[in-house]
Simulated assay, not measured.
Amino acid sequence: MAAITRHQSNQKLSRVVVHGETVYLSGLTAEDKTVDTEAQTRQVLARADELLAGVGTDRSKLLLTQIYLRDTGDFDAMNRAWIDWLGEAAPPARITVGADFALAEIRVEILFTAAL
């Protein structure tokens, strides 16, 4: 059985979990939640880059992303940041859904799964 390693853990969650050759990131939200959806998305994607690099992988190895939006009317704004961030990387499988968040200022949350 493949080893499981957990990074940046607390009582509620592990920010990063590595199982075998697969990396799972917890749902990420923006640090500055006062900005619009596009800016929050850019913050989340930058944080994902940091976390993926921390375990030896990057956005080019994304397998799946799950994107949650407070307002599905912000789909195009989120996609502008997403497409810019992906650049030349092959896009992963992806789902985007509307969601209620515990904190009203959260506009977007993204969960990532990547290969090592």
Rank of each mutant, 00 (worst) to 15 (best):
M1W: 00
M1C: 09
A2D: 12
A2C: 04
A3R: 11
T5Y: 02
R6D: 11
R6T: 14
Q8V: 01
S9A: 10
S9N: 06
N10V: 04
Q11K: 00
K12I: 10
L13W: 00
R15T: 14
R15N: 04
V17K: 02
G20P: 00
E21N: 10
E21V: 06
T22I: 04
Y24E: 14
Y24S: 15
Y24F: 13
G27P: 15
G27Y: 03
L28K: 09
L28C: 05
L28M: 07
L28I: 14
L28D: 01
T29N: 03
A30E: 01
E31Q: 12
E31M: 06
D32R: 00
K33V: 07
T34L: 01
T34E: 04
V35L: 10
D36A: 02
E38R: 08
E38S: 06
Q40R: 00
T41H: 00
T41G: 07
R42K: 08
L45K: 03
A46H: 03
R47A: 13
A48F: 00
A48K: 03
D49E: 14
L51H: 09
G56I: 04
G56C: 07
T57V: 04
T57S: 05
T57M: 04
D58F: 01
K61R: 15
L62C: 06
L63V: 09
L63D: 15
L63T: 13
T65A: 08
I67P: 00
L69C: 10
L69S: 06
R70M: 09
T72S: 04
G73V: 08
D74T: 10
F75L: 15
F75P: 08
A81H: 05
W82E: 03
I83N: 12
D84W: 02
W85S: 05
W85R: 05
G87R: 08
E88K: 13
E88W: 01
A89P: 14
A90P: 13
P91F: 15
P91R: 15
P91W: 15
P92D: 04
P92E: 02
P92A: 02
P92Y: 02
A93F: 04
R94F: 11
T96F: 03
T96W: 01
V97D: 13
A99S: 13
A99E: 13
D100V: 11
F101V: 13
A102Y: 08
A102M: 08
A102K: 02
L103G: 03
L103I: 09
L103M: 10
E105W: 00
I106C: 07
I106H: 04
R107L: 11
R107E: 08
E109G: 01
I110F: 03
I110A: 12
I110D: 06
F112I: 15
A115W: 10
